[in-house]
Design a binder for these strands. Structure first.
Lengths: 162, 162
DNA sequence: CTTGACTTGTTATTTTATAACATATTCATT
DNA sequence: AATGAATATGTTATAAAATAACAAGTCAAG
């Protein structure tokens, strides 16, 4: 299953969506020899519960509900692991984290953040990143990482409001 | 004077650069009927001292040195004013602020952030923003604001390291 | 000269993130 | 199994970034 922006921003079988992404993540950790420990797995599941980005302390609250200690490093370490290995993304504008919907597929995501329903989707294609690379290249700047984020209104929320 | 990425990332007459930008900012506040009060003006001057982004508390330290009270809202309010009126930009990846080098010129800046010298430049052109708008438009997402930021190495620092 | 909008002063608190170090677990190699 | 290196977790404490809330002052237009 392929989860793209159209899907994220509309009603869909989220149980299947979450399940498919989780399975994909599991393949990846297996292939890469990573350890998807209980906290890490649970953290990923928490992020996958919705397409909304969650703050670290929100994740922590839910980890606590699953029996883990209420200590910030617990959440931050798990989140950092997921981000480092491409299983989650950090959304800088929101100081929050969202599950990666295409783990394993190399990509340079640009995020679309709906400020009405708070859903976060990865924009299709790599055109935005490509444009950034080109703009940087033009002045001799070498990019290591980028954050490409837009805040606005998703199709469903536009319609609901119109 | 036009301050673009090439200039920011190389040695230049920064006194003139700062002065020109400050004057431009003053024209804008005049035209728009805004009040560039002492704290606000000093804050802009502080940001203009270099092409590095400064955290709010760094700005606050320097405001204190100029006689203002050491209280976070003092800095945040001035910074928010500058950002709201296009005289400064917020760099989300750094939790920091940088003076706008093209105040008044309508633009959707993409930032190039050198992680060696910490200089921040606005990438030339609007191609990155255009690509973002196109990507969003393709899925029916309506953009209000965006953060387009890349971290890497500027030409001078690449060379110094090579 | 007063009304209303904007600006500043000030105290306190909230939210986000990391430092530091002890303990435990895992896994590859003896 | 025993050992040791790397990795992961537990825990305490603190740092860094941002905002809430409300009182008091300033300013320009009517």
């Amino acid at each position: 299953m392929r989860i793209d922006a159209e899907r994220v921003f509309s009603a869909h079988d989220h149980a299947a969506c979450r399940q498919a992404t989780l399975e994909r993540a599991e393949e990846i950790v297996a292939v890469e020899g990573l350890r998807l420990t209980p906290v890490r797995r649970r953290t990923l599941e928490i992020l996958l519960e919705s397409h909304q980005a969650l703050g670290a302390y929100e994740v922590l609250d839910r980890l606590v509900a699953s029996g883990f200690a209420r200590q910030p490093p617990v959440a931050y370490r798990a989140l950092d692991f997921l981000v480092d290995h491409g299983l989650a993304h950090r959304i800088r504008r929101l100081n929050a984290f969202a599950a990666c919907m295409r783990p394993g597929e190399p990509h340079r995501p640009a995020f679309l953040i709906c400020d009405t329903c708070q859903a976060v989707a990865e924009a299709p294609g790599t055109a935005v990143a490509d444009a950034m690379l080109a703009a940087a290249g033009a002045v001799g700047f070498e990019i290591e990482r980028m954050s490409l984020e837009a805040v606005g209104r998703c199709p469903a929320c536009r319609e609901a409001r119109a």
